[in-house]
Every structure is written in C-alpha cells, then in structure tokens.
Nucleic acid binder design. Sequence first.
DNA 1: ATTCTGACTTGCT
DNA 2: AAGCAAGCCAGAA
Length: 133
Amino acid sequence: MTAVLAVVDLVPSGSAVSYGDVAELLGAGGPRQVGAVMSHYGSSVAWWRVLRASGEAPPGHEVAALRHYMEESTPLYGAYEAFLRTGEGRWRVDLTAARWAPTDSGFDQLDVISDQLERQLHKMSVPDDEMTV
DNA sequence: ATTCTGACTTGCT
DNA sequence: AAGCAAGCCAGAA
C-alpha cells in the first residue's frame, strides 16, 4: 500500500489521476485495490488527486475535494460553485485536461516504486551480501 | 477452499 | 444522462 501512497505523492498540484491510472502506473493490482488502499490510508496524502475515471470525487468527500480543486485550480466541469453553496448540482474534474502525465523523473520514481512493490509481493528479501545478478 | 465485499471500469440499454 | 450487468483483484469472513 505504501507503493500506492508513493505514487499519489508524485501527482502534482492542479492535476489528477484515476484509481485505474494508479494501478496501471504501478503495474500491479486493479482499480479496486487502489480504492481500498485510499479508503484506509488515503488521509496521509493528497487523496483528492485520485478519483473515479468519470471525474467524480471520492464518495463522501466531494465537498472537501472540491475545495482543494478550487485552491489548486484543477480543471472542472459543471456547476461546482452552486454545489459548494447549496450542495446541489453536478460537476466533475476535467480529467482530459487534468490527467497527470508522468515526467521523466516521474517515470524513474515509478520504476523504483514498482520494483519495491514487486519484491514485496514475491515476499523476497534481498540478501544483504550480494544483490548483483 | 468458498463466498462476500468494495473510495473501480466498461460496455450496453 | 442514468442505470445495470459483468469483469476485475485482494483482503476478510
């Protein structure tokens, strides 16, 4: 799960990714797994930058998320202002515009993260004496 | 081992 | 646009 959180940390302010994107970048698991992690440990990171593929904020946190989106000027659709005031109306994050495209350094980070994850999955501990293969 | 559940997705009405 | 069914993956019961 630390892997998921690590990926979320990579997403810059003003942009976002879907649960599925994270799973893909991670090269393991699926959207539901990412969602599960976020629901339990998401509070320690910028959770609002991970949302449904449709652009809807995480269930039960739409108001808090919207405040963040407005602060970060994340691309939005619809009557979000009205929603903030009255709680009525539909709105979404414009993922086609906000979706994060990993930078070069970002890819490097992702490699490291997915490596660690895989190692963890295989439950393989690296012998401290020889790591050369 | 089997069944259930969910901050998910996609495709089809 | 909105609802539904089926896939999907892991962890919990």
